[in-house]
């Protein structure tokens, strides 16, 4: 049964990929990318990698589609024809794929209990992590404690991505973004060809886009708190089930981005200012690194949470809680920063 699901999902995946490659409308490509992420998330679920699936769904389908769309607002919506034939690319793909397949020939069989993966390091994680680290979710133990330093690295990667974007594109100053969302690219073309009697009706929409989106606003107001609440749940539930700082940060950010989409970016920027976000991003990294440093001052190694409390397990718990918080804050701040930078880059709709 599982293999049928696998086959179906994989064939959908292939179809989506081919469609993405063929399609010239970037908007459609982005939508297909979202589908692609969703499919791969489903595949991860069938492989029992629920945490990965969760992250993929939150980041791939959620945030990255929005970010891509906002980036799309800055460019053309159709891909230009490539100047040369795509056969070279095909050759590249075929060669690389062939090498990869060749490489898998001597791999231990998938799920083989005797393969080194299942006999070496993982054994200790499974056997000892509940009384060495604590959380029932082993993924969290590995992620936050055994290999907590890698996670710090990943957090900084996200931080870097955010500030790289700001460094390259730059925040506009407050006065510079008077332009609102939902304003059509140019009035002339979109209205000239339409009948005049309808034109008047929509005149108000241009100036106050939110006013006629009453339903959206109300639903948004209903759901945004729930989204934020859910984000907090994911944040603090990471010890027990799928979840943790990365996913929580993304979900929290998506709540804010939703707010910005419905109520206008400028309003959102008054609620959560770019400066505040910058400080939050910094704070996220500092919380993580700070925990490590505190561990050092208390006599342990960097990120050795055992020393944080009298009882090692409590120490681990506290440490993981804090660093997940740091990750969450950082991811949230960076995601929103990215959205702001794209959204305010140029006149246009998101």
């Amino acid at each position: 049964m599982e293999s049928v699901v696998d086959i179906v999902l994989l064939s959908f995946l292939c179809i989506t990929v081919v469609a993405i490659v063929y399609i010239r409308k970037l908007f459609c490509a982005i939508m297909l990318l979202g589908i692609f992420s969703l499919l791969s998330a489903s595949l991860f679920v069938t492989m029992d990698a629920v945490d990965v699936a969760f992250t993929e769904a939150a980041v791939g389908t959620g945030i990255s589609s929005i970010l891509l769309l906002s980036a799309l607002a800055l460019t053309h919506t159709r891909e230009q024809r490539p100047p040369h034939q795509p056969y070279i690319a095909l050759l590249v793909v075929v060669v690389t794929g062939a090498v990869l397949i060749y490489g898998t020939m001597d791999l231990p069989r998938f799920g083989d209990p005797n393969s080194p993966i299942h006999r070496h390091v993982a054994v200790r994680y499974i056997a000892d992590s509940p009384h060495e680290v604590g959380p029932p979710n082993i993924v969290t133990s590995v992620l936050a404690s055994y290999r907590g330093y890698d996670t710090l690295g990943e957090t900084v990667v996200i931080f870097t991505a955010g500030i790289a974007l700001v460094g390259l594109l730059g925040f506009r100053r407050r006065q510079e973004f008077k332009v609102r969302l939902y304003q059509p690219m140019d009035k002339k073309t979109s209205y000239a060809e339409n009948s005049t009697e309808d034109g008047d009706e929509f005149e108000d929409n241009i100036k106050l886009p939110g006013a006629n989106h009453m339903v959206l606003r109300i639903v948004g107001k209903m759901f945004i708190p729930l989204i934020l609440l859910f984000a907090l749940y994911v944040q603090f539930h990471g010890d027990y089930g799928p979840g943790g700082g990365f996913q929580a940060g993304v979900i929290f950010a998506s709540g804010i981005i939703l707010y910005a989409l419905i109520f206008d970016v400028e309003t959102a920027m008054r609620v959560i200012t770019p400066k505040g976000l910058r400080l939050l991003a910094v704070a996220g990294v500092f919380i993580y690194g700070g925990v490590g440093l505190v561990c050092m001052f208390l006599g342990g190694n960097f990120l050795d949470y055992n020393v944080l409390s009298a009882h090692p397990l409590h120490g681990q718990h506290l440490g993981i809680f804090l660093i997940e918080l740091g990750v969450g804050i950082n991811v949230f701040a960076i995601m929103v920063i990215m959205f702001y930078t794209f959204a305010n880059r140029k006149r246009g709709s998101v």
Partner: peptide
């Protein structure tokens, strides 16, 4: 709802 409204707003009839 939002899609339909936007479409109408953009001139789809």
């Amino acid at each position: 709802h939002a899609l339909a409204k936007t479409a109408l707003f953009k001139g789809q009839k």
